[in-house]
Design a protein around this nucleic acid. Structure first.
Length: 844
DNA sequence: TGATCCCGCCAACGT
DNA sequence: ACGTTGGCGGGATCA
């Protein structure tokens, strides 16, 4: 009896079942907060279907969503109750959700249906886990599963406990690019090949040794540091302590995705994926249970990825049999390029080191220098510091974050006192700024203290702290050749104008850092630094190695056969070392340092951000995370030639030079005060907290200029400035532009959408101004203006693809697959060539 | 049966 | 001390 119940009650039921074990049902699961927002959709047997359908069409989805949101509330609640009552007695076998109805995939669909793929900045894109869980009638645990993988794709980001920000697919392409890069760096392709090869050999007999060897090579390979490609670590905080991190679903998810992006027929079997992922963690004995567990997790991930329509389940039939696998159906990840007009666009793994200016992609690639768990290595004091900071930040964040039941009101600038959004949202409200600012700044002094502390801590930690003369974070990879050139991604807190806030962890020669701006952050984040991420660029290893590898690979191919890979095999050695011995060492060290540096940077950033804004919207990126680089577009080699220039972030360069952003040449001195990150994004949308604004005066100005708006002109700005100055947030001389108007630019303005060609830029510019005008026109702004979907013209090709693949029943790739899978297919990435006997992919 | 993967215990983490 | 996250794997379902 307990079994059959209304869906709603189901949870309860199951719990009761457990009751035997656990008398108290509630206690086990975190008690659902009595949230009122009930499920917008009463669980009807068809609700799932409905959801699915709506999910299928973004338009419909959003429409529905809106509707639902609008009427959720009491009525719904009551309805629900009624429903419950009714149902309770029935024989709802049907509703008895057969397992499938409870599947993660479905749940994910429902989850996704709640949010638009491309949310406008203006909308309220917050996700409250409690609410969601309740509305979807699932335990929170399940929501975490979903959110975690979404997080790995940067589709959401955690704001505070129980709260996430929804970014939708805005960052997707960037993220994927970054992941691809990392995947390439990690040599996933090769690993995959190895595994396949191994399997192949298995067929014959070679297992034993082969395995061992595999393991060995594998191990060495990974050991090369990927162990922790913790790209995923979106969470900084967690980072500080995290222990579970490496196993995290997030990480796994990213890695999993990488596998797809890296492999040629973009099909990955669970088995292979599991092996690789396991291998990474530790090439240990391929423990059966471990393997099994891995597979389980992969299913979880696959389910949500499937819901996102990034992959789809297929079956690969090989001699051995039919193996479950997944095929990438997501957007093609372009190899970078298009944006880098000026630069060399090396598509596939260009050698970072030598590369003068890394393209955006490259940056991403560099993001995750393979490094071991060094991330965890940070100095204790740092950790502590981080924690402190983080905590502080959280507190701050959570406060303003109050539940705002805006669920229904998503859009629009909710004016909540104390929220930066308010500022940004309503220009007219600028008058309120002072008050708000004050409010927000309450903790300022405290923060300042912290900052100090943190800084000191940092310094102490730093073995050889370098003060970066220029706060500019270089987004470009520094040429490895220049050892001395460490690019300090320093972000300096403008307000304090401490010149070199960023003490760069001194990096070993050749290491450069890049700062990546998370596109999504643009809206959420305040101006500057917080939004970016410093990345160490792994320069040393890729280039040379790669070429070597390919060579080797070729060789291997030739030799390919039964012989297990022997040590002699160049491939192996390469794999293991990842380059010439000397180099490898260096590189590893670098990696380490880099990571440390990264962390430090992050810390710094955090501190700053903390200091600067109490704002909830501030988000920091953890070092380990892969963050799509918004615009590392024009690389500038020039910058690297000398140290001074080095200080300037290519990003900035880009930014400033970009028409869109409003080009404002920044002088070194200016740089001090200004911050890079704010760059182009600024024009788009920045939720500025008073503080943050203060922080990036220059930027703002640039933005304004570009938009024809002058900060100075806005009366509000003066108020703001006054306030800020008064409070001491900004130096007297500094002017903070009030450009709230700009903050809520339509999505299309997002950096990622900015095309790099001049024409496009112009286009964008136009668009921007238009938008701006619109903004001005609307006095209220209180209404959500329709979020402009990204104009096709502005979209990158991939985007199109993305859309395309969404089409139900889209092109089936079978045919294309077959092309690749014929016996001759070769691995494009230049890895071991492993004969693949007819691969048949069957879709379900 | 093997492929899937739901469910929820429970530990790490956070406050 | 309690709430939040989320690793993990038993074992139920599905195909």
């Amino acid at each position: 009896r307990s079994v059959l119940k209304t869906p709603l009650k189901q949870a309860a039921t199951s719990r009761s079942a457990l009751t035997e074990i656990q008398p108290d049902c509630q206690p086990l699961t975190t008690p659902p907060k009595p949230k009122e927002i009930l499920p917008a959709d009463p669980w009807t047997p068809t609700s799932n279907l409905k959801m699915l359908i709506s999910a299928a069409s973004p338009e419909i989805r959003s429409r529905e969503q809106r509707r639902e949101l609008s009427d959720n509330s009491r009525e719904v609640l009551q309805a629900k109750h009624c429903l419950q009552e009714h149902l309770s007695g029935d024989e709802y076998e049907k509703s008895q959700p057969s397992r499938k109805e409870k599947s993660l995939g479905l749940l994910c669909h429902k989850f996704l249906a709640r949010y638009p793929d491309y949310p406008s900045t203006a909308e309220n894109n917050y996700i409250c886990l409690d609410e969601v869980a309740e509305e979807l009638n699932v335990e929170r645990r399940r929501i975490y599963d979903i959110v975690n993988v979404l997080e790995s794709l940067h589709m959401v980001s955690r704001l505070a406990k129980n709260r996430y920000a929804w970014h939708g697919r805005h960052n997707l392409s960037k993220t994927l690019q970054a992941l691809k890069k990392v995947g390439e760096e990690n040599k996933y392709t090769q690993q995959i090949q190895m595994i396949k090869k191994r399997e192949y050999e298995h067929e014959f007999d070679l297992d034993g040794e082969s395995n061992e060897e595999m393991a060995r090579s594998f191990g060495s390979n990974e050991h090369s540091e990927m162990s922790f490609v913790e790209l995923p670590g979106m969470e900084f905080r967690a980072a500080s302590v995290n222990s579970r991190k490496d196993k995290s679903l997030r990480v796994m998810s990213q890695k999993f995705v990488m596998l797809f992006l890296v492999s040629t027929p973009q099909i990955v079997s669970l088995e292979v994926a599991a092996k690789i992922l396991i291998g990474e963690d530790q090439l240990e004995d391929l423990d059966k249970s471990k393997f099994k567990t891995k597979i389980r997790r992969l299913y979880d991930i696959a389910n949500v990825l499937s819901s996102l329509e990034l992959i789809k389940k297929v079956h690969v039939t090989e001699e051995r049999g039919r193996k479950p696998a997944f095929k990438w159906t997501g957007p093609d990840v372009l190899p970078s390029v298009q944006d880098t007009k000026l630069e060399t666009t090396s598509t596939s793994c260009p050698p970072p080191i030598l590369e003068s200016i890394p393209s955006k992609e490259q940056c991403s690639k560099n993001l995750f220098p393979s490094r071991g768990k060094q991330n965890f290595t940070r100095h204790p004091s740092l950790i502590k510091l981080v924690k402190t900071i983080e905590n502080d930040r959280r507190k701050i964040q959570s406060a303003p974050t109050s539940p705002v039941k805006m669920s229904a009101s998503n859009f629009v600038f909710p004016l909540q006192p104390g929220t930066d959004q308010n500022l940004s949202a309503l220009p007219s409200k600028m008058a309120q700024v002072p008050a708000i600012a004050k409010h927000q700044l309450e903790g300022q002094s405290k923060k300042a203290k912290e900052l100090k502390l943190s800084r000191s801590a940092l310094e102490s930690n730093q073995s050889s702290p370098e003060v970066v003369p220029k706060p500019e974070p270089p987004c470009v990879a520094a040429p490895s050749q220049q050892p001395a050139l460490a690019q300090p991604p320093a972000v300096c807190p403008p307000s304090h104008s401490s010149v070199s806030p960023v003490i760069l962890p001194h990096t070993p020669a050749g290491v450069s850092y890049a700062i990546y701006l998370h596109p999504s952050q643009a809206h959420t984040v305040t101006t500057y630094s917080p939004s970016f991420m410093l990345q160490p660029l792994p320069c040393a290893n890729v280039t040379g190695i790669k070429s070597i590898n390919s060579k080797v690979l070729n060789k291997t191919t030739t030799e390919e056969g039964d012989n297990p890979v022997t040590t002699d095999d160049p491939t192996k050695s390469l794999t293991a070392k990842e380059g010439p011995p000397i180099k490898s060492e260096t590189s590893s060290q670098r990696c380490l340092k880099r990571s440390q540096a990264l962390q430090e940077n992050n810390l710094i950033k955090k501190c700053r951000s903390d200091e600067e804004s109490l704002d909830t919207s501030l988000t920091f990126f953890p070092s380990g995370y892969l963050i799509p680089l918004t615009q590392c577009t024009h690389g500038n080699k020039a910058g690297f030639s000398n140290k001074e220039k080095a200080g300037i972030c290519s990003l900035q360069h880009t930014t400033y030079s970009s028409p869109v952003a409003g080009v404002i040449p920044v002088t070194a001195s200016e740089l001090k005060a200004v911050n890079i990150p704010a760059f182009q994004i600024t024009p788009l949308n920045i939720m500025l907290s008073p503080t943050s604004i203060a922080a990036a005066p220059v930027l703002s100005n640039s933005c304004l200029n570009s938009s024809n708006t002058s900060s100075a002109q806005n009366p509000s700005s003066s108020v703001l400035n006054f306030t800020l100055q008064h409070i001491g947030l900004i130096p007297a001389g500094v002017q903070v532009p009030a450009n709230p108007v700009l903050q809520h630019m339509p999505v299309s303005l997002q950096p990622e959408n900015v095309s790099y060609s001049s024409e496009n830029m112009n286009l964008q510019e136009e668009k921007v101004s238009k938008n701006i005008l619109q903004l001005f026109d609307r006095d209220g702004l209180s209404e959500k203006y329709s979020a402009p979907s990204v104009p096709k013209e502005l979209q990158e090709p991939q985007t199109v693809t993305e859309n395309f693949f969404r089409t139900p029943g889209g092109p089936n790739t079978v045919s294309s697959l077959s092309a690749n899978s014929d016996g001759t297919d070769r691995i494009s990435q230049g890895t071991l060539y492993i004969p693949q006997r007819k691969l048949e992919v069957s879709e379900d």
